[in-house]
Amino acid sequence: MTEKVILAGLGGQGMMLLGRLIAQAVMLEGKNVTFFPSYGTEVRGGTAYYHLIVSQEEIFSPVIEEADTLIMMNLPSYLKFKGFLKPNSSLFLNSSMIDKIDAPENIDIFRIPATEIANDLGNVVASNMVMLGAYNAVKKLISIPTFLSCLQKVLQGKKAPFFKVNKLAVERGIDFINLSKG
């Protein structure tokens, strides 16, 4: 099993944290993982993107050429990475910020209004967690309790109160997929 995920969004949309937490969770579950962030001058704004590879086998290149999954938070990100989709791969779109696209063929597309859902929960920054919930509901890559314990470790001290809303956002993401299936 190898899963290659590209996460991308506007700098500040929390893709770095999300990718790192997924990587940490799968590491704790004993899988091999590489997480290769874009780096440089984009701190806020600009497209920030991350290559995440999870595998039972040894991982060689951490750079993804053909992705199994794209998690895209805004339109410029999608436009930048749509060429990385291989046949039968999955595309998770934050439909709050990506409305119309020319849908590629042979791709499973999941449109999640992540920003709206997070906003309804009272914390727009948690849109990354909504995407995680939705992604994992489909791909079952990580155990949610492990993921949440990693999240809790990051959200300590002053940030501790934000854990609840982030946890809720993950659950809403899961629900969104499960409900739309039903």
């Binding site: 990587a23 590491m27 993982v33 290769f36």
Partner: peptide, 10 residues
């Protein structure tokens, strides 16, 4: 190199 410096692994 930059890739080794920036990438995360266990």
């Amino acid at each position: 190199d930059a890739q080794l410096g920036q990438m995360m692994e266990p």
